[in-house]
Design a protein around this nucleic acid. Sequence first.
DNA 1: TGTGTCGTTCCGTGTCACGGAACAAACATT
DNA 2: AATGTTTGTTCCGTGACACGGAACGACACA
Lengths: 241, 241
Amino acid sequence: MLDKAALIVESFRPTGGPYRLAELARRTGLPKPTVHRLAADLVRLGWLERTDDARYRLGGRLFELGSLVPRRRDLREAALPFLQDLFEATRETVHLGVREGMEVVYLERIHGHDALQLPSHIGHSLPLSCTGVGKALLAFCGTELTEEVLARPLPCLTPHSLTDPARLRMALENTQVSGLAYEEQEAVLGVSCIAAPVFAGGDAVAALSVAVPRARFRPAQLAPAVRTAALGLSRMLRGGI
Amino acid sequence: MLDKAALIVESFRPTGGPYRLAELARRTGLPKPTVHRLAADLVRLGWLERTDDARYRLGGRLFELGSLVPRRRDLREAALPFLQDLFEATRETVHLGVREGMEVVYLERIHGHDALQLPSHIGHSLPLSCTGVGKALLAFCGTELTEEVLARPLPCLTPHSLTDPARLRMALENTQVSGLAYEEQEAVLGVSCIAAPVFAGGDAVAALSVAVPRARFRPAQLAPAVRTAALGLSRMLRGGI
DNA sequence: TGTGTCGTTCCGTGTCACGGAACAAACATT
DNA sequence: AATGTTTGTTCCGTGACACGGAACGACACA
């Protein structure tokens, strides 16, 4: 029963809803009466909400609980000042992401009034190989995982996404040397990105990035800012000042 | 059974853990074998995690789901640029909060390297009457709720918290006239705060605030910035530019 | 060695989750 | 207006599985 409830809640990814009852039954593969009963329980618990037109969406209680997750909250809290610095230095959309399995999960995204239309919402996950943050993490996470990713077919979000393992391997090697990862229209058309890993010990525990409309992408000017922020956060996590 | 699982998850508020098995049994009032079985299920679902010392804490999946909650995500997304403006104008800790029942829930908090030690974590809730954001919301949320709050005993976080209904009523009337709410050491000793409501239609749907160490609290300089940010966000939510 | 608390496993009991069937209401199509 | 379709909802008999007391070994402390 817990599994069924979780199935319902997870079926709201990645949009959060709202969905109708029949829609939920279809998405989860559960019988309609079962969804009806469980959804009612979840609403009572505040995990789901009913919209004015009687559809279901994820509920506020879930937000409150999710915000408390220690591993996420602590890293986000520590990183925020550096994300601020990075934003003020670049005036562009900046990201904080971590690796979760073979994907990148975004913990924070800061932008000004001219927000880019990006798929990198907070809590959203994307393939490691298609994003700057993902490549920065992948380049510094141990050989076995790198090989695992390279072995599988590479996911493809745009026509520019890297699908050739050899090219990805080369990009990762460059990143390992330079400490910077680049991405050009591989996640969204028209948007380029530069990222740097954050270390706490040997491996990368997170990565920062700046996403910029392709037209005004100037890597040489962004690189020092991203690197500085990432190094600053790394030092902070190491327990420094 | 869903209720028991929810009880376990909710028992992690407000810290997020980690807690030992026996600790969870005590906090929830459930028998130890029951907690053991349910917690194992929750770990399998990613809603809880086990620390290296075998304790339980809230899991990453919960963060991802919570970030998708539409009502929260959309407001936060819309407000972020204005929070940025407010932060850059004041260089102090800025908040975005909404009302949830008779409490305020914080959706976002932005700060620099000199972060204040505040209880206003994202997702955390505090009494309406003890915070600047709460008072701004309370002053513009309809008479019936205001009276409800004033009728009950006022919660008390510090010796400076308002416990006299008459004084709170006066403060709210001032806020209704000026469009600004003040709070001085009522939530945390040594920290003062100024807040402004955000409107979308008749009632306040959110509020912004700036929290400042009491020593350098200069309301006259903060007021225009907070008001400007709140009005800008209000216009944006009304579908403006 | 004794005493407390810990996490974990077992298993008989009884409960409550389950979902097919049937329902009315809303909408779409002709 | 008549028909068909999809919607959300309720009912209820059946059986699976959640439940938690009891007992276990491991560990810490005195």
